[in-house]
Design a protein around this nucleic acid. Structure first.
Length: 201
DNA sequence: CTGACGATTCACT
DNA sequence: GTGAATCGTCAGC
């Protein structure tokens, strides 16, 4: 297992990075408590020209400021007053690309995840959906802005690679307001994986 | 200062 | 399938 380097995140094509993230392991290590999961579903947000992105049109606020930071930063924000959504910032400084992690397959620390989420037993909902992913791994908005190849939060590669045949793409979820951008196939997931949210095609 | 709302989830009909 | 929960952020006054 090796941590992904900043170079991985700082490439130019957010779609390529999004696809490459499938199969990688997202790890949190708060106070020496490890929890991790294999990434099986992601969505790409393509910067200022993407109407579904918080950074559309160069929009820059206190909340999304970290999207303009260098690739490899974590962008976490609160949605619906309840859910923390975890994103990875990509590309270089001042280019607000980001990738939303939508689903994981639990790898390590399942008991801790159950405790954090208040669930009684393991089922596919534990790390399915972006809100649940953050909850299970203990990711909060206060972690927004920290660098990913860090001690407490990072993404690792254990050598597993999904082939193109195992990966499918579809329009993103929950962004119907984005007009024609809502139709773009910027969501990537592992075919048939039970942790993938939404309908499986 | 105020009001509207969201890259969602879950319980309930 | 439908609707409530719930609060930080942001635009507007």
């Amino acid at each position: 297992m090796r941590k992904l380097s900043l170079e991985f995140y700082q490439r130019k094509d957010v779609l390529t990075i999004a696809k490459d993230l499938l199969g990688k392991i997202l790890v949190t290590n708060w106070k020496s408590t490890f929890t991790s999961g294999r990434i099986v579903e992601v969505e790409a947000y393509n910067g200022t020209i993407d109407k579904a992105s918080h950074a559309f049109g160069g929009r820059r606020t206190k909340r999304n400021e970290v999207m303009y930071a260098e690739g490899g930063s974590a962008y976490v924000y609160l949605c619906y007053g309840i859910h923390h959504l975890f994103n990875v910032v990509t590309n270089n400084k001042d280019i607000p690309h980001a990738i939303l992690i939508r689903a994981l397959e639990p790898v390590r620390g399942v008991e801790v995840m159950l405790k954090r989420t208040g669930k009684k037993k393991t089922d596919y909902s534990l790390t399915r959906g972006p809100g649940n992913v953050s909850k299970a791994l203990g990711i909060l908005t206060k972690h927004s802005g920290i660098s990913l190849p860090g001690k407490e939060l990072y993404i690792a590669d254990d050598g597993l690679v999904y082939s193109d045949k195992e990966i499918a793409s579809s329009p993103r979820i929950g962004v119907d307001y984005a007009g024609r951008h809502a139709k773009l196939k910027y969501r990537f997931y592992v075919k048939g994986n039970p942790f993938v949210s939404g309908k499986h095609k």
